Simulated scan of single mutants.
Amino acid sequence: MVEGDEQAISEQAKRGFVIFNTKGQCSSCHEGWNFTNDGFQDIGLPSTDIGRGKYLPDIIKMQHAFKTPGLREITSRAPYMHDGSVATLEDVVEHYDQGGLDRPSRSDLIKPLGLTSQEKADLIAFLNTLTSNLSPTAVPTLPR
């Protein structure tokens, strides 16, 4: 779609791409070709793991902060989050929609979104397009 092939993804996934870049605010951190800014954020997960805060104890925003993962092949990588605490993409979207735990270290980008059921489904349809349809064993071999 980005390269101009309007038939590359479904209409639902196209709507999800719009949500990803607007109301969902996903592209604030999941940007570029690999859908990551390689930054560290506290997204409000309920966990005692302080992540980056272990190494930067005096920086509030680094408490509970973990690296923003790329989203390529996302459907092949469940469970989600640094600790595997979120089982499905639907649960991931729900976490972000609710805004996570409100604490001083939580990223200013994370807050309740107010997505509708349709917007959540559209967003998931878009995320599904970020996974190739090749099986992991379908790696091309080079001629000898």
Score class of each variant (00 low, 15 high):
Met1Gly: 10
Met1Trp: 05
Val2Met: 05
Glu3Asp: 10
Glu3His: 13
Asp5Tyr: 02
Ile9Phe: 00
Ile9His: 08
Glu11Cys: 00
Glu11Asn: 06
Gln12Glu: 07
Ala13Gln: 04
Lys14His: 02
Gly16Phe: 03
Gly16Met: 09
Phe17Arg: 14
Phe17Cys: 11
Val18Ala: 13
Ile19Pro: 09
Ile19Ala: 10
Asn21Gly: 13
Asn21Pro: 01
Ser27Leu: 00
Ser27Ile: 00
Ser28Phe: 08
Ser28Met: 06
Cys29Trp: 08
Cys29Glu: 09
Cys29His: 05
His30Leu: 00
Glu31Gln: 15
Gly32Leu: 06
Gly32Phe: 04
Asn34Gln: 12
Gly39His: 08
Gly39Thr: 12
Gly39Glu: 04
Gln41Cys: 03
Asp42Pro: 03
Asp42Asn: 12
Ile43Ala: 09
Ser47Gln: 08
Thr48His: 07
Asp49Ala: 10
Ile50Gly: 04
Gly51Arg: 12
Arg52Tyr: 13
Arg52Phe: 05
Arg52Lys: 12
Gly53Trp: 14
Lys54Met: 08
Leu56Ile: 02
Asp58Leu: 14
Ile59Phe: 02
Ile59Ala: 12
Ile60Val: 15
Ile60His: 07
Gln63Ala: 10
His64Asp: 13
His64Gly: 07
Pro69His: 09
Pro69Ile: 00
Glu73Lys: 07
Thr75Ala: 06
Thr75Tyr: 06
Ala78Gly: 06
Ala78Pro: 12
Pro79Lys: 13
Tyr80Phe: 15
Tyr80Gln: 08
Met81Lys: 11
His82Ser: 04
Gly84Trp: 03
Gly84Cys: 05
Ala87Gly: 02
Thr88Val: 07
Leu89Ile: 12
Asp91Trp: 04
Val93Cys: 03
His95Tyr: 05
Tyr96Glu: 02
Tyr96Trp: 01
Gln98Asn: 09
Gly99Val: 10
Gly99Tyr: 06
Pro104Lys: 03
Arg106Thr: 15
Ser107Cys: 04
Ser107Trp: 04
Asp108Glu: 11
Asp108Asn: 13
Leu109Asn: 13
Leu109Glu: 09
Ile110Thr: 10
Pro112Trp: 05
Gly114Asp: 09
Leu115His: 06
Ser117Phe: 00
Ser117Arg: 10
Gln118Thr: 04
Glu119Met: 02
Glu119Lys: 03
Asp122Ile: 02
Asp122Trp: 00
Leu123Gly: 00
Leu123Ser: 05
Ile124Leu: 03
Leu127Phe: 06
Leu127Ala: 00
Asn128Thr: 10
Thr129Leu: 09
Leu130Lys: 08
Leu134Asn: 14
Leu134Gly: 09
Pro136Tyr: 06
Val139Lys: 15
Pro140His: 15
Pro140Val: 07
Pro140Arg: 14
Thr141Phe: 08
Thr141Pro: 05
Leu142Cys: 13
Pro143Arg: 14
Pro143Glu: 13
Arg144His: 13
